[in-house]
Nucleic acid binder design. Structure first.
Length: 456
RNA sequence: GUGGUUGUAGCUCAGCUGGUUAGAGCGCCUGAUUGUGGUUCAGGAGGUCGUCGGUUCGAAACCGAUCUUCCACCCCA
């Protein structure tokens, strides 16, 4: 074989079966989004760099795919700048557009740009691919789909409650039982930082704390020390590591840890509101858990923080996440717009469903019945029947060539088409069709109406 | 971005310390079976060993670069 063509690192092709399965997930999520009152929007694959750059931190900027300007872009770079060979400085000169990195920032841009047309509170959903120049691993791609639902323009905590229910509804419909909805609140984390007197190191503190289940208590403490958090401060947070038990028990623990922090107490109030609501309206299959270590990469969140972990035993990172950001649109100049949103990681959910063998067996999209082609006259006879079947809503086709019988049968078999019709001279004379059920091997010669009745 | 790992037939993989025409299972093709697939039997095709370069009398095997896979950091869906 000559040099095989290839696709870039971290991208994938999808076969018909894979697309059907992905569509199954997407349509399930979409249906629930709609049940909860969300409206769809779409935004361009690429945005102006100024819209995206600086919104995800230094690390995020590095992972944004930049698009080169058209034309003789290098010619416009000044000689002294070019001689410096500083990529960071030259990039803005030669690239003014970039592929979107997530759906939240484009959404914020959308809201600001269309603020006069949008009716608030605005509930939107968006299912589109995003791109990250990350190094791929299992469940991490450079092109992947996000399924986001956000509400902008409402401070109500009922939104948080609804998003917990939305998560539960989606995973219940997907038959993916036992996912954990981990809940935290940025105000709790701020409270911790306040209590230990390290408010200026809040981010370092939360990033370290987030790694608890991965590197353990000692690892977390070590990292905090490395980041310059004082020894006695670290000792003060020791009770955090002792938090356990159910939601209420953890809340009680938090109440004593955060008794001196106003912001911390506010966070506890918010958590309790959500918990009470969910207690009154129990979740169908998901579990709600309080995880005070939850923080990762979510530095723009100001209130609730969500993360979804796959059922126990499935080795997969988070399959969804989200939270509240008080000033979603502030970066684009529209103040006092509180937003809250969640995201589903389509590609990871796919991997989890595949691992647990949870995709439904029936592939509705597949052809139900195929007609063997015996020649020109017979093909016309078959085509007429196929037209009637299609009009009746049945997926039907005629084999295009009058190839060998064996080849045509094998084709039907490989495509898992359940029924094959053989109609030759005899059948044509009787105005009938011989229909064969592939799985049982049984066949009978009947009128077209009977076939339509049978398959409808 | 850092460190490591992987790449041999369509697929899953053998191939010992470099030594003639590179193997297996499954799959594929043909026939037994000219109006019957999935089973069985008999034959058969298919690989410049990811790519480029180097070491060597000789490379799938050793070295370098590059692409790709997966993993750990970083970060994250």
């Amino acid at each position: 074989m000559a040099q095989k063509p290839s696709i870039p690192k971290g991208t994938r092709d999808f076969s018909p079966e894979e697309v059907n399965r992905r569509n199954y997930i997407i349509s399930t999520i979409k249906k629930q989004f709609q049940h909860f009152g969300f409206q769809p929007i779409e935004t361009p694959s690429f945005e102006n760099s100024s819209t995206l750059m600086g919104k995800y931190g230094e690390e995020g900027d590095r992972l944004i795919f930049k698009i080169l300007n058209s034309g003789d872009f290098l010619n416009k770079v000044k000689d002294d700048l070019y001689a410096e060979k500083d990529s960071l400085k030259i990039t803005p000169k030669i690239s003014e557009k970039a592929l979107r990195y997530d759906l939240t920032v484009p959404f914020a841009r959308y809201v600001v740009q269309h603020q006069n047309e949008v009716e608030f509170p605005f509930k939107r959903y968006q299912i589109q691919p995003v791109w990250r120049a990350d190094r791929p691993q299992k469940g991490r791609f450079r092109e992947f789909y996000q399924c986001d639902a956000d509400v902008v323009g409402s401070d109500s905590l009922w939104q948080e409650v609804e998003f917990v229910q939305l998560y539960d509804s989606v995973f219940t419909s997907l038959k993916l039982n036992g996912v954990t909805i981990k809940l935290n609140n940025r105000k709790i984390l701020s409270g911790f930082a306040e209590v230990i007197g390290e408010t200026d190191k809040l981010i370092d503190f939360t990033v370290a704390l987030d790694k608890l289940d991965k590197i353990g208590k000692d690892g977390v403490i070590k990292e905090m020390k490395e980041k310059g958090i004082a020894e006695e401060a670290i000792q003060k947070i020791d009770p955090i590591f002792e938090l356990n038990g159910n939601f209420s028990a953890k809340i009680n623990g938090l109440k004593s840890i955060l008794s001196t922090s106003e912001v911390g107490k506010k966070g506890i109030e918010e958590l309790e509101f959500i918990q009470r609501a969910i207690e009154a309206m129990p979740l169908k299959t998901a579990k709600l858990d309080l995880d005070v270590t939850l923080a990762r990469g979510l530095n723009y969140y100001t209130g609730a923080i969500f993360e979804i972990s796959a059922p126990e035993g499935v080795k997969m990172g988070s399959i969804g996440g989200g939270g509240r950001y008080d000033d979603l649109t502030g970066i684009f100049g529209l103040k006092n717009m509180s937003g809250i949103g969640i995201s589903f990681g389509l590609d990871r959910i796919y991997l989890v469903l595949e691992e647990l063998d949870l995709f439904p067996e029936a592939v509705e999209e597949n052809t139900k019945i195929i007609f063997i082609n015996f020649g020109e006259k017979e093909a016309l006879y078959a085509m007429k029947a196929v037209r009637a079947l299609r009009d009746a809503g049945i997926n039907a086709e005629v084999y295009p060539d009058s190839a060998k019988m064996k080849k045509q049968m094998t084709h039907a078999n490989r495509r898992n088409i359940p029924y094959v019709v053989l109609a030759g001279t005899q059948e044509m004379e009787a105005e009938k069709y011989t229909i064969k059920h592939m799985e049982s091997g049984e066949q009978e010669t009947v009128h077209l109406d009977e076939i339509i009745q049978k398959l409808r």
